[in-house]
Each structure stands twice: as C-alpha cells, then as structure tokens.
Design a protein around this nucleic acid. Structure first.
Lengths: 257, 257
DNA sequence: CGTCCCGTTGAAGCGTGTCAAGGTCTGTGG
DNA sequence: CCACAGACCTTGACACGCTTCAACGGGACG
C-alpha cells in the first residue's frame, strides 16, 4: 500500500510542492519570481503511461522534458537485446536541455511507471534562463550533480559486488526522492521491476531477486509490491558505501553566472 | 617503438597543431581570433610526471586543467583499495571547468604517463568564453560528448563481456586520439598499464592480460610496450559494437548560444 | 477463466577473480 | 660491467559469484 496517492501534492508548503522548485532550491537561492516561474512550468502537463518512450534513439528532439510525477529513465539496447539503463529521471528532473539539442539522440528516454511530464520548447527554456539567472545557476548545478551521478554509476557497476550495487541504487533513489518530497525516512514507492534493477546494475533479474532476499534477511530493507521499506538506513548505506555528497554539492553559490 | 616523438607537433598545419583547436573545431566553427586564443592557451604549460595527482578528492580547486600532451584520468578509490577510473583526459581535453567550481571534488584527477598541462584560472576561462562565443559553443558541445562518453562507459561495464569492454576502450581511445592528431589508422601510443585498463573496465589485471592475448590471436589488435597496433579496425569495432557517434555529434550548429 | 507479466526458487555451468610463481625489462648503485 | 630491486607482464590452477535454464506461483487484467 503506497503511503501517498500519486496525485496528491507531496506537501502543503506553497511552491515547494513542485518537485523542480524543491530540487533547484537546494542548489541555488531562487527568488519569489523564479519560484513562481518554475511552478508555472510544472502546472498541468501531460499524463504518460508506463513503459512508453518519451524520446527515442536516433530522433531529433526539439523539446526538453520535465518529469513532474513518476519515474523515467535513459536507456539503450544492445544488438543482442540486452538493455542498459544509464540514468533515472525522478520528479523535478529536467531531461537534459542540452543533449536534447543534439540532432540525434544516442539513447532513448522512456517511462518506468505512469508519469506526468511537461514538454518545454527550446525557446521557452532559453527565455526562462535568460530572465532568471537564479534558475540558470541552479540548472547548471543540477547538471553537475547529474554528471557526478553518472560517474558514481560507473563506479557502481565497475567495482562493486551485487549486493553493494543494489544497495547503492536503493540509497541513491531514496536520497533523490527525499529531496523532492517523494520519500520519507521509512521508504518510498518505486515502480521498478526486478528486471529494471538488473538492467541498471548489470546483474541478471534472478540474481537481483536473490540479493533483495538477502537484504531482507539482513533486516536492512524490504523491496516488493512497488514499494521500498527501509528498515535500517545507516546499515544499508554502510553496505553500499553510500556517500550522498555527489547529489548535494556543498557550495552552490561558488558557481558564477 | 613510438611512431612519433612525444614532443614533436602532430602536424604542421598552423594552429591545428594544438589539440584543443583540433578538437573544438570538430564541434563548432572557430574564427581566426578564436583559434589564436586557444593556441595561446596551449603554448607553454607545465610538465608533470606520470602517476601524479593534478586535483585531489576533497580539495577545492580554483583552476581548470587543460591537457596539452599525455594522458590523465579521473578516478576514485574505494575504502578497500579498489580503484575505478571514470574518464580519460586526452590532449585537447579541458578538465571540467564547471566541476572544478565545486567546493569539494568528489573524485581525483591524475596523470597516467608524463603530461604537459595548462592550469587556467576560473576568471581567464570566463573571459575567454565571453569574448569568443564560438569557443563557448564548442566547449558546451565538448561537454555533451563527455557526458555521452560516461554513459557509454556505464553501458560498457554494465552489460558487455570482458573482450567487448577492452575492445571498446581501445576503439574509443583510438577515435579520440585521432581527432587530436595523436593516432593514425595503424595505432597509437598508450601509456596505460594493464592494471589501468583493469581499473577502467572493471576486470582484474590478470584477465585483461588474457583478453589482450586473445585479441592478438584473433589478429585484431596488438597491445604492448606502451603501444597499440591496430591490425583490423573494422573487426575490432565489430567486437566492441563501437559506434563513434557519441564522440562526434552530427550537428554542432544546432546548439544555440 | 485464461493469459501474461512478474517474482521466486533450485540446479548446473561458466566467465572472471584470486592466488601463486616466474619472466622480462628498466633503472640504479656498487 | 654487474648485481639488484621494482614494476609490469605472463601463465597455470583453482575457487566462486553470477548467469542461465527451467519450473512454478501469484496477482492483474481482459
């Protein structure tokens, strides 16, 4: 049983109920006008079903994509059919406004579960960042965090064991969802299948299942029914060697411009 | 026996002998003034020995680092001593002017072999991009390519076999070095040890050795003596499923600004 | 009521890691 | 010129973490 209905606002604190406002506020100070502008973006939007593509490899996209609700991912298929997920897009994440300017996407972006998204035309985005330097600064910072996250993933699949990889993924999603108000200390809703976790961590779905069982037996975390219940956060982070630094850079203001 | 002495310029075509000029020119048109400005940057610089750190995890860097000659890498150590290399910095690569603005580096940057580098103060870099929009555009594009490269690495360690991973790495380095004039169709000089390759691909040094032997027996590539000799480029790329697209985005001009 | 997707579990095989020993090369100091 | 040390490469034997294959159960949905 989910703790909160997906369409209910995460919290009753005005603009902060919009995940992108919450997220960008952690990176740079936003004035009232900037918060309002972002909130305006998040309003409305388009409902998209789970397991559907938002941007496909090879296409020439003309819009950025803001995830307002739900979880999406960047992924690619190998010729042999194997899939690798290279990033998750959580509420408040803006699917790379720059990459989107490339004439050919080298990977696809698709939803995991049902999502609410906003497509933002290139010009509207440029206009927004020109008018609101705080937003521009925060977006640059968010992008840095995203790059660090990708490097962390290289670290994860490159030199950690199965249980460490899965734990690390669960910790990262927990931390990122907490920032935007979609997770509590106790856990979070997660629409991923075990196959998705496998395609993220470079493991087989069978082995992911075994690792999740082990984590449950270790009384660290229980994953099941589209829900993650965290029993022992310090313990889980210890197993994962999780250092949240890369998600929350310490000095947003040091980036000029 | 290296094909070219390291201190000799790659080619005699004026400014294009500077790797950063060659590289950025592939991403956006640069006018004469911009090429000259970049060439001015590359001149001189500082010699650094192999196996030394340029930026260390936890420090607060105040300069960007341009690699003019040699190879450096981003890396991190796990508490258990394991090392993961998350990126290589080749001649012409500018160590992320933005990440460098963070107050705390989450990873280190160190040289592989001897290098020639230029440290660029934050203000000088800002000045350069303000004065030369072409450079700014090209740098943005270079950064996109770098992000795509990191995602490709996630793909590599996440879902490819040992021989595929090593082949892919060799293909990527070949292509990137070719762009800046440090590789020919026949091969390139490479100061990496087998342990470095192992720390990059998530394999053990022993297994890297076996894979390299196999690639030699397959008559695809010979690696040894700090040199990579490519015997069958199409064959090697086929094994690696190497798609150079991610390094050379097709439409540089579509990025505004 | 059947179908399909997902989760679960067991058994067997294999790719890769680990351990260990020795070889080669290079630089260094006697 | 030789002896030695250290870093790197190479190879073999063995161990193990993970994959693969297969079968079954349960829940959602038409």
């Amino acid at each position: 049983m989910p703790t909160r209905h997906p369409s209910a606002p995460p919290s009753p604190d005005g603009h902060l109920l919009h995940p992108i406002v919450r997220k960008l506020s952690t990176y740079a100070h936003l004035d009232a006008g900037e918060r309002a502008a972002l909130a305006g973006l998040s309003a409305g939007g388009q409902r998209v079903e789970g397991r559907s593509d938002l941007l496909v490899e090879g296409a020439a996209p003309d819009c950025a994509v803001l995830v307002v609700e739900g979880i999406a991912c960047r992924y690619r298929h190998r010729p042999n059919g194997a899939r690798q997920i290279t990033a998750y897009l959580l509420p408040g994440d803006l699917c790379d406004p720059d990459v989107v300017h490339l004439s050919r996407m080298t990977h696809s972006v698709g939803t995991i579960g049902p999502c609410r998204i906003v497509r933002i035309p290139r010009e509207a985005l440029a206009d927004l960042t020109e008018r609101h330097p705080g937003i521009a600064r925060a977006l640059r910072h968010a992008k840095l965090a995203e790059e660090e996250t990708t490097r962390e993933w290289v670290m994860n699949v490159g030199c950690r064991s199965a249980i460490e990889r899965v734990s690390h993924l669960l910790c990262e999603l927990h931390e990122r969802l907490r920032i935007v108000g979609w997770a509590t200390k106790a856990g979070y809703d997660l629409p991923l299948t075990q196959q998705d976790v496998a395609d993220t961590t470079g493991l087989s779905n069978v082995h992911v299942n075994r690792v999740l069982r082990q984590l449950r037996l270790m009384r660290l975390v229980e994953v099941g029914g589209k829900r993650v219940d965290i029993l022992d956060l310090p313990g889980l982070r210890a197993v994962a060697e999780f250092q949240p630094d890369y998600l929350r850079p310490t000095s947003a203001e040091s980036i000029p411009g």
